[in-house]
Structures are given as structure tokens and as C-alpha cells.
Design a binder for these strands. Sequence first.
DNA 1: GAGCATGATTTATC
DNA 2: GATAAATCATGCTC
Length: 349
Amino acid sequence: MDEQPRLMHSHGVGMAGHPGLGQHMPDGTEGEGRKQDIGDILQQIMTITDQSLDEAQARKHALNCHRMKPALFNVLCEIKEKTVLSIRGAQEEEPPDPQLMRLDNMLLAEGVSGPEKGGGSAAAAAAAAAAGGAGADNSAEHSDYRAKLSQIRQIYHTELEKYEQACNEFTTHVMNLLREQSRTRPISPKEIERMVGIIHRKFSSIQMQLKQSTCEAVMILRSRFLDARRKRRNFNKQATEILNEYFYSHLSNPYPSEEAKEELAKKCSITVSQVSNWFGNKRIRYKKNIGKFQEEANMYAARTAVTAASASAQGSQANSPSTPNSAGEFRPEQRLDRTLCCLLCKHFN
DNA sequence: GAGCATGATTTATC
DNA sequence: GATAAATCATGCTC
């Protein structure tokens, strides 16, 4: 402190050498003196970088103790605040990143982010439903998918927590630094806020990378799981016979209704979509090669006829001649099939 | 292992 | 959304 006058004097701007700074002017020249005073202070600030470290420290201290410092500091704060406000105004108008939104939506849909209940298992269940199977193997795959998704979810949340913690620590550190610095240079709260925003944006870009990696991992898992769906199993013999029976007994219109599909699915222990697939495949393959399927068609028609005939015999002669077929309906073409089948039955027996 | 059978998927059409 | 047609991928038989 005792070197202050020396320093100030040596540079010709010492407070003692300036009446306007050191004391009030009684003759009315105070205003003019203050202008000069502020000019000098600014000059000191501008030349402070030219000083040696010791000199600069001393100069800094002298400026901090200057009686005009609070007023000047406030003015500089106001100027900076206005500048920062204009910058912030421009930044706040930025729309949310669409890529980040997509990643967030996907992670939410896959059950990686958001509440844990059902998310991943719902996605797995949807995939399993698309696979069409409901057997033990499928549920095993399902649980495997869930376990792996749960692992991904855990890693994601751990990493996210780490990033958030690091971000908070760094933000606190920077804020403390800025608050410390605000004693010696004008730093408004808004400027600190802006700096915090910059830090958060930097960290959110890191988070985006994490989200991207997580999405990729989920996609790989999902594609592996979906690929497994292609590992088909042939239907058992009984299921194939039930389906074929229906197909050939409805050959003129092999399009089962939704109810019929459900019934067939139940009988065959398969799903309705598998029934639809089977009929789709059967129709197209039958149409492409009727000759090849003729024998099969005859055999099923014969069976249907035998069943119908025995039912008819049991039902007594009093019954109507229009006996319904196994599907509960009667078709004129069935009569032709039946005639053919009687002949075939005789042939096979 | 080749060739065929068969369930599932994809794409186009209605 | 249901279906046809083409295609894929796996299972089965020899």
C-alpha cells in the first residue's frame, strides 16, 4: 500500500497528482476534473499489459481502491450486459436440434431412456409378435433381448450420469472462477449465465454422441433379434393337416374370414398372422402348379367326403340333403367333390 | 451338398 | 388393411 503513491506518481497519473481524484475542487471545475480523471483511469487500464507483473499487480490494486472504481465498474457492467443480452437474444431463438430430438424419441420408444417399466419389453414383445411365434424358444429370445436391452440401458444411464456430473462440476468451477474474476473486471450475472449455456451446449454435444452410440447398439441388437425371426420351424403335421383340410374344402374360395383364421390358429397352436401367411403361400403355390397339388387336393377332398358321409349317416335319413360341411357351410361344388371322393375312397380302400 | 419344401418378409396393387 | 407375387432363408430329404 505504501508503494501506491510512488507508482501512481511515477506514471504521472497518481491520485495525489490529480486534484480531481484526490480531492474536490471548490472552484466549480470538479466536472471537468472528473472527465480527465476517467480518461486517466481508462488509460491506465489500457496500458496495464505493458507493465511488469509486480507493477501490474500494484496498478490493479490501486485501481481497485480508487474511489471512482465502483461507478466506472457499473458503467462497464451495463455495457457488457447489453452486449450479452443481444447475443443471448440471438441464441435463444435457436430451434431444438432435430437430430437430438430423433435420438431422444428413439431412445424413449426403445425403452432406453424414460421410465423403465415395459419400455424395452414392449418393444421386444412387439418384435416377438411380429415374429408370430409364441413358443418357448420365442420367450427365451424375448428375455434375452430384454436382458441385453437392460444392459444397454444401464450403460447409457451410467454414462449419462457421469457426463451430467462432470458438466455440473465444470460449470461450478467456471462460475466460481468468473465470480472471482468479477472482482477485478466487469462480469455481469448474465455473462456468467451465458458462459454456463456454452458449457452446457458443449456437454450436450458429448451427450449426443452417447445417444448416437446407444441408438446404434439398440439397432444392432434389434436387427440381430429380428434376424432370428427368420429361423423358422415347420408347422407340425397335425397343424398342416388342419390347414390343408380347410384349404381344400374351401377350394373355390380359400379365403378364411377373421373368425375362421382365429379358430384355425387356435386349433393349430399358431398365430393368426401365421395362418394368413400359410393361406397366402398356399393360394399362390396352388395356383402356380395345380397339377402338382391335384393329388393332395383329391386326398383331402376324399377325407372331407368321408367325414361328411359318416356324419350324414349318423344324422338319419330325415335330415336335409343339404348337409353342411366340416366348416359349417354348404357349397354346390362340394357335391361334385363328394362324388369324386366316394370314387377315390373306394379306390384307396 | 444339391434340390426341393416351406414359413416369413417385402413390395406393389387394389 | 388384405392380398398377390416375388423373394429370402431355413428345414428336410436324398
